[in-house]
Amino acid sequence: MGSVGAKEIPELIGADGRRIDGRRPDELRPIRIVAGPLHRADGSAFVEWGDNKVMAAVYGPREVHPRHLQQNTKAIVQCKYNMAAFSVDERKRPGLDRRSQEISKVIAEAFESVVFSEEYPRTSVDIYIEVLQANAGTRCAGLVAASVALADAGIPMVDLLPAVAVGKVAGRIVLDLKKEEDNYGEADLPMALVPQSGRLVLLQMEGHMTRPELGEALDLGVIGCRKIYDVMKQALRDRYAAGSVVSGAAFSAAGVAP
């Protein structure tokens, strides 16, 4: 285009078939999960995934606010996804925007389909996802963090919910897009899997893919999800194996008003 300020589009897949950061097409970015870092919350998790850093906290089941949302037969699942102002290069204007509302909605709906909500009628399970550092795939990272946090909070559910994005970059289907691939690629396909049943409970797409490419992308995504599932399970096991079985409430003290 040659317009002022336009960045040069990087070469997303090199001659050796490697991606911009040296990964193979079916390779995930490094992922690290810590279960239970927050003591005030009923459950929490921190996820570092590539250059993403996401914290999730879960409260509940607890009283519903606002009251009119209360359901007499089951618990509701509420989610708030938020990006910190400092999470991206250019300051993100704080607060709700259309994008974060949409992500909150799809994540809440994904969890609604796995949480056994009939067990706690008239209550709410509240999920808070804070993106501290973003580099594409934050809704998946947030979902993974929230899922570990839900398990850490002792919420009954069908399964953990691993999630990953598959995309089309320079004409090829690749796993787990990073920022440049997301910005300059042809398609982005985030998904969340229920490993126990093989069902997908979140599937969105931006961009274009042919039908065979979509099939290939779904297969690749499921493989990626299963790898992430293992990391999620290990994070929860580590929390309880360390001998520090100080759970949710941990050692929190509060003064009593006289």
């Binding site: 759970s247 409430a249 509060a254 003064g255 009593v256």
Partner: peptide, 13 residues
């Protein structure tokens, strides 16, 4: 009613 004092929370378990 509890008057004064301090509250400490632990896991119910």
């Amino acid at each position: 009613k509890l008057e004064g004092g301090t509250l400490v929370s632990v896991s119910p378990a």
